[in-house]
Design a protein around this nucleic acid. Structure first.
Lengths: 239, 239
DNA sequence: TCGTACAAGTGTACAGTGTCAACTTAATCC
DNA sequence: GGATTAAGTTGACACTGTACACTTGTACGA
């Protein structure tokens, strides 16, 4: 465990201090990016272990060997910090999808792989998932970005990778698979957008039910997930 | 607006009071059930208007013209209070389903109606929905109840209505429709449990995505929902 | 080598939170 | 009328997110 210099010996002193205050132990300066990364690491751990409400800015700061106030120099808000942690989910998801989809060319099988991946990632990272998908953080303006992205896509625009957030890239994959399915004239509907959203909704529904009500005695995830994906794909296709 | 007698004029007084404290205005005693109901009403309103985090026990109490401490006489926890409010969702949902399903005998059309109902109810009561389905409140032991219920059902037991919570009744409806579909040999699978869960997952996924990311520029709900339900039903059925 | 400017960090305070133990008071019943 | 008890209050505790004003480490130009 980290040496914890900042857990406030600032109890109520009762009398005013007359002597010059004891100078605090000097603290290393490791530079903003390093500090930011460290905070994210520490906060991520605590958050994954203790949950969202039990992890306060002060405790994060203490564990990072730093003052709470400093966190606010690096992240305007608690929301901002949390969301930055949640962003980590997309990194994992993106990598996992990349690996799972590999060279699958059949769009149907690709979709199956992507969905499996999504659900697995969600179940394996419940806190991060909750943060990124089940918590509205309106102070960050993420919705507007996403909306703009969706609209450009609907107009058929090709969007350069640099302009896409990690989240967009993940959703983009799924959408692409749906589009391929449509292009191959395999689907009943032609509304790529709506279908992609519906597919996402299934994955999201599964993950969020399972992670927030893991005590409801659901059908074991593997079977439930496979059955759901199967149902979804059958529902998508013609005949 | 309610006369707000308890919004604490207990600021820091600076000097100790020497005079006997001003006796507080006498407060009517309206009886425990009435008070409980009133608190639930007030809290429900505030919660629906201001959201979960902005609604504190103290503010609820103040608005109800009562002390915060009193809330703890009626509800062990904030969780308990919140969950009691959320329970209201099932009342609405149950009534809406009752009305919507009416005399529909075709299990397929019944399911469609039930799903529409579920999604509509969720979208129309986002705060309550978030509370009941997207917030884990493990301190209440609801999971265990639900699990037991599901297991008895899986064994084919008939469960008397008095033993079922409102939530169980709602899920039970859906499950029954699936069972009817299976009995009519219309489905690809025969796993009633898993299918019911999958169907729920779709509905839940739709609602929760829409209510927490209403700014993502989704396909308009009506179309998205119809398309999703359609997809689901097609996926469920043979051929 | 020194001074300085800025980044990186600090202490302290504020108003608000959930919760609790100990107390007071209104209503009820014999 | 007096005892009992349910319904309510007071005041505190330990904690929260956040703002402000301050200090200190470090890199760099003269």
């Amino acid at each position: 465990m980290v040496l914890d210099r900042s857990t406030s010996f600032c109890g109520k002193l009762g009398t005013k201090m007359t002597a010059r205050k004891q100078r605090p132990l000097p603290r290393k300066r490791i530079g903003a990016p390093a500090r930011r990364a460290q905070i994210l690491r520490v906060a991520g751990d605590m958050f994954a272990k203790d949950g969202i409400d039990a992890t306060s800015m002060r405790r994060i700061a203490a564990k990072a060997g730093v003052t709470a106030t400093l966190l606010y120099k690096h992240f305007v808000d608690k929301d901002a910090l949390l969301s930055a942690i949640g962003e980590g989910f997309f990194t994992k998801l993106g990598a996992a999808m990349e690996g799972a989809v590999g060279g699958i060319t059949d769009p149907l099988e690709r979709m199956r792989a992507e969905m499996r991946c999504y659900v697995r990632c969600g179940i394996d990272n419940p806190r991060e998932y909750h943060l990124t998908f089940m918590t509205a953080l309106p102070r960050l303006k993420r919705g507007a970005q996403m909306k703009a992205f969706r609209e450009r896509r609907r107009r058929g625009e090709a969007i350069p990778a640099e302009e896409m957030t990690l989240g967009m890239k993940c959703f983009g994959r799924l959408e692409q698979s749906v589009a391929d399915l449509v292009a191959a004239k395999m689907t009943r509907s032609k509304d790529v957008s709506a279908m992609a959203e519906a597919v996402w909704a299934i994955g999201h529904g599964l993950v969020s039910l399972i992670i927030t009500h893991d005590d409801f005695g659901f059908t074991p995830p593997e079977r439930l997930v496979e059955q759901s994906i199967d149902m979804m794909l059958h529902g998508l296709l013609k005949r």
